[in-house]
């Protein structure tokens, strides 16, 4: 027992105190920074993009498809494409995920998530989710698990993953939604109590990502039900997830 207690002393404090302004390593590929004026429309970036997230006229990146792999940055001769380490990428509408030259960190963050009165009034202190991996590769799942560890500790904001949809306010979906999971996903959704918040996590869930053309995918669920929050990334960084949910349930 003393050894166990000694470990506690050895570890000291591990949590990130200010999660909203947590520093991010500069190497992290987050919000794209585009420079349309130097782009010569050669289309090389479109050729290497695995998900078709790029548009060159004018230059824009759709974060719902982007896997933040950086292949476009590496191939661009004119350095028209860069990635900043800005990680608050969540948005409440799919249109807001399209990044153009004009979009800076401030503009992106300001318009990304609007606080809805009914959400704020009910969930501002606590929100519980059921997570469903529907063809997810375990990348987003591991990062969502990490969001609950001693570093990020989202439990302190009242955000948690619970074991049953009956105990949850919403559902967090990862993966492109495989045919074999379509039924279970819908079943889980129907087991939630109202208002049934739906959060999509990761490029696969948002658009199918690299699996857009896969044969065993069935994304009908998303045509039927309304999505409340889109969180891009491949995989989603824990800070991206926590900040998106906090912006969703609390006033900025």
């Amino acid at each position: 027992m003393f050894d166990t207690l000694k470990m506690k002393l050895h570890q000291k404090k591990q949590y990130i105190p200010d999660i909203k302004n947590a520093p991010m390593r500069t190497q992290f590929r987050g919000l794209p920074v585009l420079n349309n004026s130097v782009c010569d429309k050669c289309g090389a970036c479109q050729g290497v993009c695995p998900t078709g997230a790029l548009n060159i006229n004018p230059l824009s990146i759709d974060l719902s498809k982007c896997t933040l792999c950086g292949a476009c940055k590496n191939i661009c001769k004119n350095s028209a494409i860069n990635f900043s380490s800005y990680y608050k990428l969540g948005a409440d509408k799919k249109e807001k995920l399209i990044v153009t030259e004009e979009i800076t960190e401030e503009i992106y963050h300001k318009r990304a998530i609007e606080v809805r009165k009914e959400i704020y009034s009910i969930f501002n202190r606590s929100i519980k989710f059921r997570q469903v991996s529907a063809g997810g590769c375990n990348g987003c799942e591991m990062e969502l698990n990490a969001a609950g560890n001693a570093n990020f500790d989202m439990g302190r904001f009242g955000i948690d993953f619970v074991a049953s949809p009956r105990h949850a306010d919403g559902i967090v979906i990862t993966g492109p939604i495989s045919k074999n999971m379509a039924y279970a996903l819908e079943d889980c959704y129907k087991s939630l109590p109202e208002p049934r918040i739906v959060i999509l996590c990761g490029a696969c869930a948002l658009s199918g990502g690299v699996f857009q053309e896969a044969s065993e995918i069935n994304r009908e669920f998303l045509d039927k039900y309304k999505v409340d929050l889109y969180i891009p990334g491949c995989p989603v960084h824990p800070l991206t997830f926590i900040n998106a949910v906090l912006d969703f349930i609390r006033k900025k």
């Binding site: 991996s133 063809g135 495989s178 074999n180 999971m181 896969a214 044969s215």
Partner: peptide, 8 residues
């Protein structure tokens, strides 16, 4: 349940 048709 995770089958996405990766090999094809």
């Amino acid at each position: 349940y995770q089958h996405r048709g990766v090999e094809d």
